[in-house]
Design a protein around this nucleic acid. Structure first.
Lengths: 201, 201
DNA sequence: CAAGCAATCTTGACAGTGTCAAAATAGCCC
DNA sequence: GGGCTATTTTGACACTGTCAAGATTGCTTG
């Protein structure tokens, strides 16, 4: 029967990547709750269960999107870390600022990356872990460097310090994105305050 | 017709409070995603739409639970703030520690209290705001006191400092609860590290 | 005491969701 | 060209939140 809708043939070609791209767009425009597999499939022009050939379930699709978010953030931080023209203090300050900017510029992506659906119930995919953990490992290396340069307190364990710095950035980002006790108009001064607390002058 | 299930009469008596109590229990045992109105109604022994007479929608029921969580946390902190036997530094350290303990002891409650479903889309109830904001206002007052006592840096804006402290506690709590870059075995040292960064000795 | 009204519930129904299994289609290889 | 595999569609199910109409119950008033 001749169908009026332009439907892809059974072998789409690269449905997996197409689904990830379209789902990322849906996520950014309608948020995590607005992203459903049925809406996604309709937008891509396949049936609602076509994604199940490429992803075990919805969670694995979301994990694939989050993994890409981590890779983008890791590359962004790497460019900053490799900028030799910056003082240690300026680099730390920009690192903190860039993190919050990344989180608030794409709040739904950030919520997905750090949201419980993909991290709970032992459901993390290998791809997600392999994208997420280097992001932290990179910051841990920079933390050691900042301690060696006297910028951050050398008496603290680098790992604990890196965790606390990440926790502070993460908490500020979440409060601002969720609009609890802070909002976008507060961000600049909050970052200045936080940086001032961490660095040793 | 004689029914075999023990069904409450139409006028339950105090269905609103019963729903809140039962929903809190469901939340703590099965998490936010495991809490559905149908499951809740069945547990309480009413029909699935009985809650709609007491709550506009599911979001308002969740907000009522979260408001109670904020009240409990506010009372807990107040007891600490009123303990005159503690030094300023010990009080701050315990404040930080008690917050993380509160968050990690009831992770699903904490996730509800600070989760996006009840804070987004301009859907905050008055009850939620009236419970949540005093919790922060109380900490802001203590922050001013700690600054006056020389424990925290006096040159920072009290409001920004209070926001950053809350952000740090919030971020650490979330990372630990979600198991991203930190877990329960790290908490003690992370708190010690964070407190050491904030206080002036 | 009965009627009327309001409060409070139940039932029928709908739209949407994620997921599974069976069937259909299409590409590739021998 | 037939067989096999990969990839899709379709039928179906269970679950969810919510709405409207109807039923039940309690209270008030005449």
């Amino acid at each position: 029967m001749k169908k009026t809708i332009t439907r892809t043939p059974y072998h789409h070609g690269d449905l997996r990547q197409t689904l990830i791209a379209a789902a990322t767009e849906l996520l950014l425009t309608e948020g995590i709750d607005g992203l459903s597999l049925r809406k996604l499939a309709e937008r891509v022009g396949v049936s609602r269960t076509a994604p199940y050939h490429h992803f075990k379930d919805k969670g694995q699709l979301l994990s694939a999107i989050a993994a890409e978010g981590f890779r983008q953030r890791t590359e962004q931080a790497q460019r900053l870390f490799e900028d030799d023209s910056l003082s240690a203090e300026l680099r730390f300050s920009l690192f903190f600022r860039d993190y919050i900017a990344f989180a608030t510029a794409s709040a739904p992506m950030y919520e997905l990356m750090f949201g419980s659906p993909i991290w709970h119930n032992q459901q993390q995919t290998e791809e997600l872990k392999q994208a997420a953990y280097p992001c932290f490992a990179q910051q841990l290396e920079m933390t050691k460097q900042w301690q060696a340069q006297g910028l951050l307190p050398a008496e603290q364990s680098p790992l604990r310090l890196a965790q606390v710095i990440w926790g502070a950035m993460h908490g500020i980002a979440r409060l601002v994105n969720d609009g609890i006790y802070a909002d976008a108009s507060h961000v600049g001064e909050m970052i200045d305050c936080a940086v001032a607390l961490f660095v040793r002058r």
